[in-house]
Each structure stands twice: as C-alpha cells, then as structure tokens.
C-alpha cells in the first residue's frame, strides 16, 4: 500500500472519531446518542464485505491461474475481513443491549451475521485440515466462492424479507430517513472509506509477513 494512502486512512479515521462524537445528530427516542454508533458499527460490516469480496476475487483468479501468491492474498483478505466481522457483531451486541433490550435478540440480522461468520470460520477449519498445499489452495478457493455467495443473502437479503428490528431491514427504515440534511453522511462515508482502507493496510502487512516467511523457507531449502 502506498504511503499517501496510509496517511489518508489515518486522517479519515481521525476525522471519524472527532466528528463522530462532536457533530450534530438527529434526536430520536430510545436510540438517543447511541445513533453515533452508526459511524463505528456499520463501517465494520462495509469493510468486511469489501475484504471478503477481494478474497473471493483472488480465489477466482487462483482457480483460473493457480499461484501461491493468489492463494495467500485470498486467505489474508478473509482473515482481516473476519476480524472486522467479529468486531461488528460485538459492537452490535452492545448496541442491541441498550436499544433492543438484550445483547442477543435472535433478530434475523444478528442470526444471519453470526451464521455468515461461522461459514467463514469453516473456511479456516477447511484450510487447516488439508496437508497438501495445492489441494488446500484449490479446495479453499472453491469454498471461498461458496462462502461469499452464502454471506450476501444471510446478511443483506433474508433480514429484509422477514421482520427485523435492525434499521434498514424488513419493516424498519434506515437512519438515512432521519438524516434529513445529510449531516450524518458527512461523517458516515469517510468512516466507511477509512475502515476499508485500514482493512487493506492490515491485510498488506499480513501478506508481506507471509511473503517473508516463504522466502525464509526457500533459503533454508537451498
């Protein structure tokens, strides 16, 4: 990742933290000030979806033209995506506790998100259980495509088809309805971009670590 992009990442996230707490937000019952959690909880999921998408793209590219590098990128994108997804589910539980009444409400959005994360956890279980490098890469690339195809309906479609308390899902408007003067968007979009970029940065660090590891193994074999 280029240095200027890293600086942009830091600036965007710093802006999110400061503006997210200090700028005006719509005054709503029940949610009160917790509406500000929108700036931090929702970008986790946006970033997770983008990272999982990158992971799947690399998996498809691996299947078209196998190489260790592609497999490595695919795994590491999934890794960072999973971390962000877990942060998303835990922040969601805190938010749910104070607005819905309990941390785990059995809401379709929560259940769907949990199942999607389990599907991705199984991806790592699958990888860990195959010895042979080539078959591990091929199997996990195929599974990766399935995991992405399962995640989208679980998080975005099913909660919209049933009744869900989550804003933006079945029967509930998103916060964009209350954001009449688009003031929240001024913080929300930079936040989403900032967290996506941070996800890419962290992934690039992991990919580089793995590359160094590979090279050291090469040295030892020589």
């Amino acid at each position: 990742m280029k240095t200027w992009l890293k600086i942009v990442t830091i600036a965007l996230l710093l802006y999110t933290i400061v503006a997210g707490f200090l700028f005006d937000v719509p005054r709503l019952n029940i949610v009160n000030e917790t509406i500000r959690a929108l700036y931090f909880h929702v970008p986790m999921w946006f970033a997770m979806v983008v990272l999982f998408c990158m992971s799947t793209i690399h998996a498809i590219q691996y299947l078209r033209k196998p190489s260790i590098e592609r497999d490595l990128r695919s795994v590491e994108f999934a890794n960072t995506g999973l971390v962000l997804g877990l942060l998303g589910i835990f922040t969601g539980m805190i938010w749910a506790n104070y607005t819905w009444g309990s941390p785990w409400h059995g809401d379709p959005k929560q259940n769907g998100a949990a199942i999607a994360l389990l599907v991705y956890l199984a991806y790592f279980v699958l990888r860990g259980s195959v010895e042979n490098e080539e078959s591990r890469a091929r199997l996990s690339a195929v599974y990766n495509i399935f995991a992405f195809a399962a995640m989208i309906p679980l998080i975005f479609i099913i909660p919209r088809m049933t009744s869900s308390m989550h804003p933006g899902s079945g029967g509930n408007p998103g916060f964009n309805m209350y954001d009449l003067d688009s003031k929240m968007r001024m913080v929300f979009y930079p936040a989403v971009l900032g967290w996506i970029l941070l996800g890419f940065w962290l992934t690039s660090l992991r990919i580089r670590t793995r590359n160094i590891e590979e090279k050291i193994i090469d040295f030892e074999n020589e």
Binding site: K6, I10, L13, L14, I17, V18, F21, L22, W201, L202, L205
Partner: peptide, 20 residues
C-alpha cells in the same frame, strides 16, 4: 471521551506503523 479515543487510535496506528 474524544481525547481518550484519539489517544487510543494514535497509539494503535503508531503500533501499526512501526510494524510496517
């Protein structure tokens, strides 16, 4: 609260930068 979060964020970013 903002100051605390900024400090935590700055610390974490500094950690990531040194790792980089």
């Amino acid at each position: 609260v903002v100051a605390i979060l900024v400090i935590i964020f700055a610390g974490l970013i500094a950690y990531v930068v040194t790792l980089d």
